[in-house]
Every structure is written in C-alpha cells, then in structure tokens.
Design a protein around this nucleic acid. Sequence first.
DNA 1: ATGAAAGCGCTAACAT
DNA 2: ATGTTAGCGCTTTCAT
Lengths: 332, 332
Amino acid sequence: MLDVAALAGVGLATVSRVVNGKTGVSPATAARVQAAIDRLDYRHNVNAATLRRANPKTATIGLVLEDVANPFMSALHRAVEDYARARGVLVFAGSCDEDADRERELISEFRSRRVDGIIVVPAGPDHSYLLAEVRHGTALVFVDRPPRFLDADTVTADDLGGARAAVEHLGRHGHRRIGFLGADVSITTADARLRGYTEGLAALGVEPDPAIVRTGLASIEDAEEAAAAILRDHDPPTALLSAQNYFTVGAVKALRAVGRQREIAVVGYDDFLLADMLEPAVTVIAHDPVEIGRAAAELLFRRLDGASPPREHVVLPTRLVERGSGEIRVRR
Amino acid sequence: MLDVAALAGVGLATVSRVVNGKTGVSPATAARVQAAIDRLDYRHNVNAATLRRANPKTATIGLVLEDVANPFMSALHRAVEDYARARGVLVFAGSCDEDADRERELISEFRSRRVDGIIVVPAGPDHSYLLAEVRHGTALVFVDRPPRFLDADTVTADDLGGARAAVEHLGRHGHRRIGFLGADVSITTADARLRGYTEGLAALGVEPDPAIVRTGLASIEDAEEAAAAILRDHDPPTALLSAQNYFTVGAVKALRAVGRQREIAVVGYDDFLLADMLEPAVTVIAHDPVEIGRAAAELLFRRLDGASPPREHVVLPTRLVERGSGEIRVRR
DNA sequence: ATGAAAGCGCTAACAT
DNA sequence: ATGTTAGCGCTTTCAT
C-alpha cells in the first residue's frame, strides 16, 4: 500500500480511502491511485485491515459439517455459501465426521482466523465450551441438531415428528413389524428419530423389538450389514425405517441382495438423488437441506448485522414423499 | 496477548514463545502463561501473527469448485480437506458455476485473505490474470481441467481417452449410431470428451451426426430434455454417451420416460452413487475424485513446502466400469 | 481533500 | 530464560 501511495504520489491514508471506497477523495486523485493499484497488482490485505478497523469483521464465516462430501451436507453448504456470497463473505468449510474433538479443533481454528460467525452441525455432547466465544461476540448457529448445555440459535427439522409419521404411514399399509436403522443415539437427530419411531409404534399398539432395531451405524456398509442381519431374524420385519440418507442406500442394497425389495417396505429419512429412479422408487421423509442452510445463514447474518434478538429455534417441517417403497402392503 | 502477559506476570515475547511452542521458556513460566491463557480464554490471532512473521503463511488455502454440492466436486473437496487438515491448514471453498467472473471474484477474495495456495477447477477461458499471483509466490494447482494461457501444475483425467474408450466399448456391442450429451465445449473437459467421442466414432468408421449430438448442457433437466429430443430423431441413436454425472441421470430419466432403458445403451462419464442400483445398472467411465483431490493437494503442498520443481501435469487414467447399460447390444 | 502519526495484535531481533 | 522495542500492512484520529 505504501508502494501504491508512493507511485500515485499521495499519502497512505488516501490510498486507504480509495481502497475502501470512502468519500472525501477527489475523482482525479482516486483515478491516480487506482492506476497505481492496477499497475502494481496491489491486493488489499483484509487480515491486516481487520486488525486496526473500528468494526473488526473479517468477512469470513466458518462452517462445520459432518462431512462436506455427504450430499445432504454439501447441499446445505451451498445454500450457506450463496447467502454469504451475497454479503461478500467467504466461508471456511470443514468435516468433523461425528467426532467431538474434531468439532472443537475446527472451531478453534476458525476462532484463530477470527471468523465473524460459525454455523455448525454439532457432533459433540457438550457445547458449553462455546459460551465464552458467544459472549465474545462470535455469532453462532446450530443446524440440523441443537447444542447441549448452551443456548444458541438453532435450525432443525422435526425429526421426531417425521419418524413418527413414517411409522404411521407404514402402519396404514398394514405393517406392524417395522425394523429400524439409525446412527448412534448420542447424535441428537438419531435419538429423536428413534423416539419418533417408538412413538409411532406405540400409536400402532406395538412394542419395539430390539431384535430389529439397529443403532450406531455410520456408513452405507454398516447399514447394509445391519439390514441384512435384521432380515435374517426368525421373525423378520415387513418394513424398514432407515434414519439417514446413506442408511437407506444400505437398506435397499440389502433388500436387493436377497431379492425382496418388492416385498418389504422401506421409508428413508432424508431425500436423495435417484431415490425416484430406483425400483421400487424410495419413499422418504424429506427435509430440505437448502432451506435449512438458508435459514441458518439468515439467523447468523442477522446477528452479524448487529441485531440481538432473543435466541431463535427454527423447526422446519418434514414432508413424506410417497414413491412406492413405503406403500408396499403387508403380505397376508 | 498483552492481558495474558500481565496476568502471568511475564513479558509479551514470552507469551508469544509459549503460544508458538518455541523453546527457551522454563516449564514453570510456561505453565503460568498457559494458566493465564486458559483463564482469559485467550485465542491466538493468526491473522495478526502472519503480518509480522518471517514466514508469512496463513495456513489457509482456497478451493474453487464448479459447485460444492456436486457429488464429484464435494468428494474432491473432502480429499483436499483431509490432506490439508493433516498439515493444520484450513480451506476456503467456493462455487463458481462455470462462471469465469465468479472464478476471478473468488480467487480475488482468496488473495485478499492471503491464502497460501489455491486449487481451482477452472471455469474461465483465460488464466493469464493469475500470472502475477504465481510470481508473487501463491501456489496454484488446476484440477480436472488445465488452465489456458498460463503454465501451472495440473491434475486432470484422460478425458479424451475415456470418451473414446466408451465409444469403442459401445462399438464392440454393435452400436454405430451413438448420441452424445455434453456441456459447453468452452469447458476443456467437455471439449476433450467430445473429441474423444469423435475419435471413437472415427475408429468405427462413423461420421458424427450433429442431429444426435447435444452440447452446452448444464443440468439434469437440460440433459433429460436433450436426450428426449435426440430420441425423437427420425433415425434415433441405439446408444448414448453422456459426458458428466448429472447428464447421465438426465439421460436415464429420458429413457425411462419412454420405457426404452433396456433397449438403448448408455455409458456415462463420471461414476455416481447408486449407478449400480439402477435397472439396468449404469456403465460408466470412472475417474476417482478422491484420487484427483489428493494428487492436487500433494502438488500444492509440495510447493507450499518450498519445493520449486518444474510444473507437473498429472494425468490420471479413467476406468470403464461395466454394469449393464453399456453392454446392451444393438437390436437387429 | 489530504497527510502525519499512532496503534491494532503480533513476531523477531536484540538486549540482558 | 526473559524483557524491550521496532515494525508487519493497515485504519483512524487529528491536523492542515
């Protein structure tokens, strides 16, 4: 910047004014400065600027996802990016793979880079460690799952209601023996979906049977194995509820492997690309990652813009998308 | 940091030494400093540190993708993240949607944040604007597609060879009239795949027919429409080569819509989740996004670590995955 | 409208 | 082993 000032034959402050688009510079000098900037290929150093600015924003936010490559998460990522981009804000993205340590690590790195705000799909069992950060002024929004031991803005889906609706839907098609495939119940959404499943069964007057309930799954392969095991039960289920996009893929694979995909009903949590192209097409409980991401970004930027409304807990509805696999009737 | 120093009763430099894990601090003082850090919830400001450091690295890289939500791109993203994470480096990610302006804009923002390096899936037609940046010391790697008017490290796949192999494969199953669905040919990979298609046809002694070649596609919907149109040709193709993951989905949809998915062969470029679960399962030219991302990160970090080897142009092989749709024989 | 100078949080000499 | 001080690239008073 000093070089630019020298070349343009002006003071440092004037260059700063031009770079920041401030008023109080004559068009003539502004043009001279701009010419020097172009000629020297000068690039403003936002990090240095932030250091001294009255409003010390870095125009940067951090995004902690379960996995940037998971289609649900990456769709959410894109929604956040679009919202941020419209404000000239850049986003750091990171995956924590349901690992609480990695979550803390990522957020710690974000803090070191002085991000203005953080959107996080939480993995950890305790978020009280973020209290100081919130007090320090970093905006924080939890998505998909609420934080624990911390009050913060959240955007979640009605997991319990969605899972219950799925079970009720299966019940209407005659099913009473319904298997469940879920993630570790330490994950809030996994727990809520399991509870929704249980509630749904209760509404049908059915006791859950641990023999056909599998939790703690983490991959397509896990789910495929679990589904296969459940199907080998001496009293196998007539329907499956899978509580996450990848698990549904695993469940369908397992059913195909034994050629029973047209006999055993499946409802999956999360919609996914090509769900409508499988045979039978897969009925899902859909919640829109784009909508969730947009809502989260909206909350985040509201606080970044200085508003301090009371904590908000947005709960987005889920939607049952009937495609076939969930409408398979029980065999008599 | 000043507060920490005061609370610990030491000098500023000592705190800096502790924070940066440098030697020359007695265990006792180090412990006192650490205690003060914890108590004050002090967080090191990397941006400020970078400003004065001899080696002015921000431990940050930028990643420009076509779309963070595209499965191919997000898998690549994850591979880069994993590599970076092992080095304690954070990654900015951004989507440019094949828009050259957006590419420049993103890279410009990255520069302002003083990223150490940039990995880019290029969209623009001219990358000479990055020359100054490279000379300035920013490491730069192009992925999936080479830059134009700039010499830089690249990691690409053998697009031409892959497309040609696909056509030859279809040829071996009796096909001579093969339709093509591709993106805008201003995109290097799209052009290479089209040329591979043409070369493959030439090897079969066939002239390409513009009536069944569609380029300039950008979405599943585009591809579905284009495929449907091609199928309505007075002399419709007996096989389709789709040159990108989303286009293959569109092609399959179009074939299903007219119930001809078991008559007309399809080979898709890019593998995708569930390709093996469709009926028929989809034969693809696969190139591994994880491998591409890893290779790109490797090149990038080699330069970040100070090595200045000659520019490298890694070309990864593609692999034909036979699943059924590409092995449908021509009807007699 | 413009410039000089102080200072943001930190690191890197140079002291001691 | 530890403290002092200059200065990184910038913004912000405060002058003029």
